[in-house]
């Protein structure tokens, strides 16, 4: 395959940045999208040009490190991570536009690399059960209905990639934040702290500069792990019941 790549290049956070165009040839349809970029980078390096920087690590769709806005879609045309996207999803001669995540809370570091530490800070605000190591009950002393455990699992599969934020016109982090709040609100272990958790995590989310929910569902439509919008509804319920009830309820 022969392709034309229009790629966002930005030297560092303070650089203005802009698009550069690169032709690539000899791309096999079996290559993953990132392997196609590897080919480009080898060529650029051989020519003495700075390779295109992008985030990636596990390349099996689970670490959440890869990102990329491809032809206007987070992680490209399929509902998967960029590392699991293969070149057979594109056609010979196509022009592909590649950009970093665009969100105020995810500042560009270089080229296609952005800083997603805001997500870590949201989890630090309350995305845990406050138990220390040791001194916990036997695992089977807490029976949990299978349906509840399965629903908590579905919420817990979020990989923290940020596609939800990138997909949202308001760059809202509601889907990410709600997935963790939801997982822990569903499980008996997490119920003890559910009120303070919802309040603190949402406060942190707002302070990071993420926008409000648009209610369009673009986040769930683009989520590579299929995290459901139901989680946002559950988060809203958690939040309202936290603010309108007393601390002892």
């Amino acid at each position: 395959m022969k392709l034309t790549l229009k790629i966002w290049r930005q030297k560092n956070a303070s650089d203005k940045g802009g698009f550069a165009t690169y032709p690539v040839d000899g791309i096999s349809t079996d290559m993953s999208f990132l392997e196609m970029l590897d080919v480009l980078n080898e060529e650029l390096t051989e020519k003495g040009e700075d390779p295109v920087h992008f985030d990636h690590d596990c390349r099996e769709g689970i670490c959440g490190m890869c990102s990329l806005y491809i032809n206007g879609n987070p992680h490209g045309p399929l509902q998967t991570t960029t590392c699991q996207l293969h070149m057979r999803s594109f056609s010979d001669g196509e022009t592909i536009t590649i950009e970093p995540w665009r969100a105020k809370a995810f500042p560009v570091v270089k080229d296609l690399v952005v800083n997603r530490s805001a997500f870590d800070r949201i989890i630090q605000a309350g995305g845990y059960v406050s138990v220390n190591t040791g001194g916990v009950p036997d695992a089977n002393e807490i029976p949990i209905p299978k349906t509840i455990a399965d629903e908590a699992f579905d919420a817990a599969t979020c990989i923290g990639c940020g596609a939800c934020v990138a997909a949202c016109k308001n760059a809202s982090a509601m889907l990410f934040t709600s997935a963790k709040i939801s997982q822990l609100a569903l499980l008996p272990q997490g119920k003890v702290e559910r009120k303070t958790r919802a309040e603190k995590m949402i406060a942190q989310m707002d302070s990071e500069g993420f926008g409000a929910c648009t209610n369009t569902g673009a986040c769930a439509a683009e989520c590579p792990k299929g995290i459901s919008l139901t989680n946002i509804a559950r988060m809203n319920r958690e939040y309202f019941s936290a603010v309108v009830s007393s601390d002892n309820m």
Binding site: V129, V136, K146, A149, A156
Partner: peptide
Amino acid sequence: DQCVAQGVPFAREYGG
């Protein structure tokens, strides 16, 4: 025990 206490959603049987 530790992981369950943290809220790790392990697979469960219908009896919970």
